[in-house]
Design a protein around this nucleic acid. Structure first.
Lengths: 337, 337
DNA sequence: TTTCAGAGGCTAACCGTTTAACTTGGCCCT
DNA sequence: AGGGCCAAGTTAAACGGTTAGCCTCTGAAA
């Protein structure tokens, strides 16, 4: 079933059918339009996207590049990824576009072959700043980087208020009377999400004039559960020194809680814990985890708006937007009087 | 950059370049092949997938249709979905195909517009048997239904040994000395995953000759956490009657454990619990949840093999494969002497 | 010496759309 | 009466590949 067939059935040329399909109603008479539309509906005809994108040089396909989903590690398989993916798909579809998904280990391995599809734009998740700039160059299409921190403003990025998140967690503890607070994170010395969160954490102590413990910073190799357990055990082993822990990821927090328990400390009676991301699991961990929440739908909408404004050619320069965070109170924190 | 350009640079016709690209090496001389390949490499040329699929009538695109990912509910946002998605993507890509993702609320809303892309095949997740048959008719392309149970064998399906899973859980409890075992599930009267699991559960009791408690079956509205909590509370309220619970989903089990706690029962000291799916979260719930595990990579590979054998036209009729399950022991179960 | 096969290559048609440019007739204005 | 303009079409070219069919040359077999 193609244009030509429809045209023949309607007794008009293919161009007329094409015009009707694309809403160019000033190019045809009312009767013609109705006749053609009737036939289209009856035959359930849908134009070929391939033919269309071939000649129009735009495919209405958006690529979404996301790190390794298949891994058994909670961080990859995390509901975070599923949800943001779901929201992005909805946004893309609501605009009449299609989503092509690509999971990658190394960001680079990818994109040349995606280019064969004349991709209109791309969302890239969790790419480092350096890689991001490379990628931006390789694919000369509009791209929005989600959770990437670039020092310069050449990239269009959408992230959350990571710094404020760290700040909120620390301030919450300080307000609750905690003074000895550990910070569990992957390395914070490079620009990125974790550094921001740590900066915010420090901000709160600075603002309050409270000294940080000299060894409050506990660096882990990754944000997986087992590393959290180790960190928790270390904290437990340091005696009653720390009364509270901020972690940069919920999964890490789940591990820390287990590690503390293994080390003989109760959560939250002996040590309070705050996570980051507010995964659905926070509601059914034990104890339920207090966490910094990011509004994923908002994040996706934000990213979508950025990308589609670029697609429309509104080159309002690269935007760098941050979505609000908030602290969600649950049972893993108690006040310290 | 297109075929014509490359052809001109190499001093040959487009056909020759095309042949070289597609490995038809018997159609060109060794020198020509090398010259053309060199130019292709230098210019980093990639042929247009749109043009190609237009004329070849196959796109190398596989559609993946998955229910609502964006929901905040653990069951949608579940790592299960993320992981199976990741594995499917890997399989698809390993075959040189592309993955188009579509999240749906109602399975039907979808597929006519996907057809515009000349999709070669599709994976459909979590579609009911009835819908599946409709869909199969609508899109006349090879499709593999994952986690769909059809009574007849007209559909190609891949699922897990759900019945055996239910059996394993029940048998494990019986072997551990439990006699009063509750079964928490969404309705089991219609064909589907849950019915299979329940059947397996009953099988074990029948085999052992142990009577089931008259009200052992606790039906929930869905497999979300809150429903699990309610079921757990109900079980707790029924006094010391039940010493063990089998649930049809881990998230439900997490809820049940919380509900039992709220009702004053300890897990596993008073009541033991087994989940289903073996989500990564089982490793960091409290207590760690014993669960029936499905091998997702295997499941994806299985589905992939089915689909690609259909794509190759090997019409070995519709296959209905089931992937193995096993019981993973953790801390949520103790023996009853 | 003719025949035949195969290597190596080319031309033309085709896939299903969109777009630019052209046609035709009717109407209005001068 | 002639020109200009608009509505409602049409035809032809283009997008970037693939495929079928044709051509030419060389070497070997009959």
């Amino acid at each position: 079933m193609n244009l030509k067939t429809i045209a023949k059935m309607a007794g008009v040329s293919t161009v007329t059918v094409s015009n009707v399909m694309n809403g160019k109603y000033n190019k045809a008479s009312k009767e013609t339009i109705e006749r053609v539309q009737k036939i289209i509906a009856e035959t359930n005809y849908h134009p070929s996207a391939t033919a269309r994108s071939l000649i129009m040089k735009r495919s209405r396909i958006i690529a979404v590049v996301i790190p390794n989903l298949h891994e058994d590690e909670p961080v990859s398989a995390s509901p975070y990824n599923t949800q943001i993916l779901g929201h992005l798909e909805r946004y893309i579809r609501s605009r009449g576009y299609y989503m092509m998904l690509r999971c990658v280990e190394q960001s680079f391995e990818v994109l040349s072959d995606l280019a064969t599809w004349n991709i209109d734009g791309a969302f890239l998740l969790g790419v480092s700043a350096g890689d991001a700039r490379e990628l931006q160059k390789m694919m000369d299409i509009p791209a929005v980087f989600i959770d990437t921190y670039a020092e310069d403003a050449s990239l269009t990025t959408v992230s959350i208020e990571d710094r404020k998140g760290g700040y909120l967690a620390a301030k919450y503890f300080l307000d609750m009377g905690h003074r000895q607070v550990a910070f569990v994170s992957t390395p914070t010395e490079y620009p990125g999400v974790m550094q921001e969160r740590y900066r915010g954490f420090c901000d709160a102590f600075l603002e309050r004039g409270t000294e940080l413990e000299p060894d409050h910073l506990m660096i882990t190799d990754n944000v997986f559960y087992e590393q959290g357990v180790k960190a928790g055990e270390r904290i437990a082993a340091s005696g009653p020194r720390y009364t509270a822990v901020v972690t940069v990821a919920d999964v890490l927090a789940f591990g820390v809680m287990e590690g503390l328990r293994l080390g003989g400390r109760r959560v939250p009676e002996d040590v309070s814990v705050i996570g980051f991301d507010n995964l659905p699991e926070c509601q059914y961990s034990y104890p339920r985890l207090t966490s910094i929440s990011q509004h994923l739908e908002e994040k996706a909408r934000c990213a979508g708006e950025c990308l589609f404004s670029m697609l429309r050619g509104e080159t309002s320069a690269a935007c760098n937007r941050q979505v609000e965070v908030e602290l969600v109170e649950r049972q893993s924190v108690i006040a310290r009087l």
